[in-house]
Design a protein around this nucleic acid. Structure first.
Lengths: 204, 204
DNA sequence: CGTCATTTTGAGGTATTTCAACGAAGGTGG
DNA sequence: CCACCTTCGTTGAAATACCTCAAAATGACG
């Protein structure tokens, strides 16, 4: 996007909190490189990861000038940061840009709907399969085509899927035991049986 | 919205299917009166209600020129219908209108996130409380201030919350038995114990 | 007022959550 | 470069909550 030209470039190491929930929302961010997560800590102490943010994703959704989520880097990241007021001014001036932006938000909406579907499933294995398929569809880093990269921790995945860490662990084990997916370490996965995999991932 | 001026007014009786999933997405709709539901039928035969659409809500989200959901009227409804091509043309011309539209979609995104949070909860009673609070916050029809109107069936609620019909029924019973909510028939509810209600509805 | 659909209620099955403890991984400092 | 420490992940067993199936009760509608 041409927004980059008026944005500030920003680098963050892994595991760094960018902003907290309910803090004043002055900026909008775009991921240039790396992965972030947006999450909320619930009263019960549980944590829900609302989204993983990949390159090209825009984030900084606010309500009444406060961020609705906290965000934290998962890997080292490069971000573009721009003032919200600057952005809205630009959008009003540049209709074409605004339209692009609208498309972007619409896309996010579709993603969110997909996540609702995923979280609504009852079975842990299916949810994990769906998650892996989502990762698979992300633009993969150069080279490794058939390998799914999982930059986030098992615990993050659990919080994203609305499962316990243990359930994710067991679901991984099941996928491996049934020969559908092979895990190499904690950060890589490979689909071995595409047919069964798709059948699982298909929204139950 | 001023979109109404270029839109076709449309009336539907209750329980009428407006369009099906994957059918060509030529139109965008706005609810003027009544309630619609957007849903998907899953391979397993289960149905998921993705959203209830109230007055002022826009719907007709598409992907590759196909609707992503089917929609059906819950009550008799009045809709505004406009061609997608007409809309995009107008948006490009009228920057102010486009901005309004962007805000609208952003709002939908927040709602979707809220639903994700709700569906992700583990307890049926909490989910139902959260749902009732959502209904409560909708602009209520004239008069009845403290009464929550539930135009949709228990079965629709179940499909929206990702629960079985029985679970919704039992959750209602529990809310009633504990004196938190009183149901009058199947279509009206009243919060009796606001404190406990909010505590339940608070995202666990 | 009768019929059909929807909702309620009960009992049993199953998947996930919890709790606890062990094992592995990653990061830091000597 | 290795040892140590802390965090994260795995595994097992028991508890919980929802789902499913079945039947009765209630509500909707002609």
């Amino acid at each position: 996007m041409q927004l980059a030209s008026i944005a500030t470039r920003l680098r963050l190491p892994a595991r760094m909190v960018l902003y907290r929930e309910d803090s004043p929302a002055d900026w909008i961010f775009i991921v240039a490189e790396g992965v972030m997560k947006a999450f909320r800590d619930l009263p019960s102490g549980k944590r829900r990861v609302m989204a993983f943010l990949f390159p090209h994703d825009i984030f900084g959704l606010a309500e009444s000038s406060r961020y609705v989520n906290a965000t934290q880097s998962v890997t080292p990241v490069t971000l573009y940061r721009l003032e919200l007021s600057t952005l809205t001014a630009m959008l009003r001036r540049d209709s074409e840009l605004e339209f692009q932006f609208l498309c972007k938000v619409t896309h996010e909406l579709r993603e969110s709907l997909r996540q609702t579907l995923m979280v609504g499933r009852r079975d842990a294995v299916g949810r994990l399969a769906m998650f892996l398929r989502m990762l698979e569809q992300k633009p993969r880093p150069r080279g490794a085509a058939s390998v799914i990269d999982m930059p986030m921790s098992r615990s993050d995945i659990a919080h994203y899927l609305g499962l316990s860490l243990e359930a994710v662990s067991r679901a991984s084990r099941t996928l491996e035991r049934t020969g559908i997916v092979a895990f190499e370490g904690l950060r890589k996965a490979r689909v071995l049986n595409r047919t069964k995999f798709e059948k699982l991932a298909a929204a139950l």
